[in-house]
């Protein structure tokens, strides 16, 4: 729906801009100028805001992340039958939004996490198109436990079950990573 609103909006704006371009010489009175300002500055700015919002949503999708062929295997691992694989268990059981699963589990919480994810994405695009991609993909640094804790942190099943209580402080402070025990993040063919 939003996609078609933006497509129709783009067409309408271009037509409006071209029509106003022909009327420019007659912009002498105040109401004419205010109308022109609305058409030429406010509408494009609104369309741009809608476009940025749509792009932000669209580029969080799994389908966008797995466009680069290196990520194909990671995408396939989401539907793996292996119950040890964290990605598959979360994806198959809808424990994360299935449409944006990569983004949910690879972005730290908060605005800084969003900015960091965009910067990492830019770096990945740079490597993909301008450098030789590494044979084995690695995370940018250690996996941040706060990503797991943004959902599990206050869940009763996490706090009271599976021996988490003994290591809760280490997990919360980031001294210990969830991946030390749950070590199969994606099931990949070697």
């Amino acid at each position: 729906m939003i996609y078609w609103v933006l497509v129709v909006g783009a067409g309408a704006l271009v037509v409006l801009l071209l029509v106003l371009r022909r009327m420019m010489k007659s912009l002498a009175t105040r109401p004419e100028r205010i109308l022109a300002f609305l058409a030429m500055a406010v509408f494009p700015a609104l369309w741009l805001a809608g476009m940025m919002s749509y792009a932000d949503h669209e580029f969080k999708k799994v389908s966008f992340c797995i466009q680069c062929h290196e990520m194909g295997e990671h995408g396939e691992s989401l539907t793996s039958d292996n119950d040890e694989s964290l990605a598959a268990v979360h994806f198959r059981n809808s424990r994360v939004d299935r449409e944006t699963a990569c983004y949910q589990c690879h972005t730290r919480p908060g605005l800084s996490g969003l900015v960091e994810a965009k910067m990492k994405g830019l770096h990945d695009v740079y490597v993909y198109y301008l450098c030789e991609s590494p044979e084995e993909l690695e995370l940018h640094g250690e996996y941040d436990t706060s990503i797991c804790l943004k959902c599990h942190g206050e869940a009763e099943s996490f706090l009271e079950g599976w021996g988490h209580q003994a290591i809760l402080e280490e997990l919360q402070s980031g001294e210990m990573s969830c991946l030390e025990c749950h070590d199969v993040a994606h099931e990949l063919d070697d």
């Binding site: 704006l13 271009v14 801009l17 071209l18 106003l20 371009r21 030429m40 369309w47």
Partner: peptide
């Protein structure tokens, strides 16, 4: 201005 906006869109 119009040209910039059309190209941007």
């Amino acid at each position: 201005g119009v040209l910039a906006q059309v190209l941007g869109i």
